[in-house]
Simulated assay, not measured.
Amino acid sequence: MLWPFTVIGGGAGFAIASIPGAMLGALLGQALDRRLHVQSLAELRERLSGRGVPRDDELIFILLGRLAKSDGRVVDGHIQQARVEMRRLDLSEPATRRAIKAFNRGKDGRDNLRVHLTRMKTQPHAAEGLLRACWRMAWADGKASRTERELIVLWGKWLGWPADKVEGLSSTEDEQRTRTPASRGGEYQDALRLLGVRSDSEPAQIKRAYRRLLSRHHPDKIAGSGASQKQVRDATERTRELHNAYAVIKDTRGFR
């Protein structure tokens, strides 16, 4: 990892006071790198451009905006899918406004996405959720174009995922998209059972049940307790199922 202020401080210190100056400059630069959470020269350039480093809940919508515009034109299906993702994430009003702004930011294509995605390599469950959302956006207009596929595979590579594993997520999301209405009805009942709520439960009650289960099964919490890799994988899958179940119930019931 190339800490930019550490390098700059070390170089400036050496120019001023040889080796002792380099050591002091590097220490001061490292402290600045850690305080500002700057991990590469590319990230420093991104910050100096005035665009700033997006939050995780903003990054996903920057990617979705980039995908929506990748074939030249954003269609209504892309807009609707972005709204679905906002509901799926259960965003607050301020977070929803940030998401809309991030989606529009993504459409201009000026962000150095490699910098932001490389930072997420240590968050495999978050990376999977991000890639799945990208595939859902790619399928939003009924087909995943070659350009969209190439972008998602490239982003997966920056996240540390092999191409075949990234492509495998596409098949899963397309299968869910093309389910028949009858199977969607069964999906709704399955979602209710998974969250332990009834079809007449109040939205607030459903939300509490979802958040309680999400907290209990979150991979970060499991990993922090010294669990095995299999237990963390199982928790990641359980979290994904909870996200999907909550999204199905919200879409069926029509609440946010």
Rank of each mutant, 00 (worst) to 15 (best):
G106E: 08
E128A: 11
D108K: 06
K101F: 07
R88I: 00
Q81I: 01
E128W: 03
D57V: 11
G72S: 10
G77L: 11
L89Y: 01
G65S: 08
F103S: 04
M120F: 12
L89D: 01
L59K: 07
M86I: 15
I60H: 01
S92N: 06
F61N: 02
R83F: 12
R110I: 08
D90V: 04
S92T: 15
P124Q: 11
R97W: 02
R87E: 04
I60T: 11
R114F: 01
I100L: 14
D108N: 06
A102E: 03
D108F: 01
I100H: 09
E85Y: 01
E93N: 06
A68K: 05
N104P: 00
R88M: 05
V115L: 10
R105K: 10
H125Y: 13
G72D: 07
Q80R: 14
F61E: 03
F61G: 03
A102G: 03
V74R: 11
D90A: 11
E58G: 09
G109P: 03
R97D: 05
M86P: 02
D111C: 03
Q81V: 00
A82F: 01
F61M: 07
T96I: 04
R114W: 01
K101Y: 06
A127D: 08
N104A: 13
H78K: 02
V75M: 14
H116V: 06
T122P: 01
V75N: 10
A99C: 08
D108W: 02
T122Q: 14
P124A: 12
D111H: 12
I62S: 02
Q81P: 00
Q123S: 13
R98D: 15
K121R: 15
M120T: 00
D71V: 04
G106I: 06
A102Y: 03
N104G: 10
R73N: 09
L59V: 04
L67M: 09
N112W: 03
L117T: 04
H116M: 14
G106M: 07
R83E: 13
R88Y: 06
V74Q: 09
T96K: 10
D71L: 07
R83Q: 13
G65M: 07
S70L: 12
Q80G: 03
T122H: 14
Q80A: 15
T118D: 12
E58P: 07
A126N: 04
K101I: 02
N112D: 15
K121V: 10
G109Y: 04
H125C: 04
A95Y: 00
K121S: 07
H78A: 14
A126T: 11
I79E: 12
G72K: 09
